[in-house]
């Protein structure tokens, strides 16, 4: 499967986190992301985009919904997996 960045993942398409480039993030940001459950192998999905389809985006990570900016999401590489509509 193709690996893409989380900010490019089309809405409502489920994916698995492959790699997170922690070095591309500021220390506080990286720590907050870990606390909110971002980790390799976790299931993610983009749910919403900000006003006018711009920043920020809302993603489901595990069972939580997290709002974050696209620039931050770009550090997360994901691999979409085909799945019947839930």
């Amino acid at each position: 499967m193709d690996v893409m960045r989380l900010n490019d993942l089309p809405p409502r398409e489920a994916a698995l986190i492959r790699v997170i480039d922690w070095t591309a993030l500021k220390a506080g940001e990286a720590r907050r992301m870990r606390e909110l459950g971002f980790d390799e192998g976790v299931r993610v999905e983009t749910l919403h985009r900000g006003p006018m389809g711009m920043d920020p985006i809302a993603c489901r990570v595990g069972r939580m919904t997290i709002a974050l900016r696209r620039k931050t999401a770009a550090a997360v590489s994901v691999e979409p997996f085909p799945m019947a509509a839930e």
């Binding site: 940001e29 992301m33 997290i66």
Partner: peptide, 10 residues
Amino acid sequence: GESAGFMMEM
């Protein structure tokens, strides 16, 4: 300084 970004649990 650089913007600190935005990250929140909904």
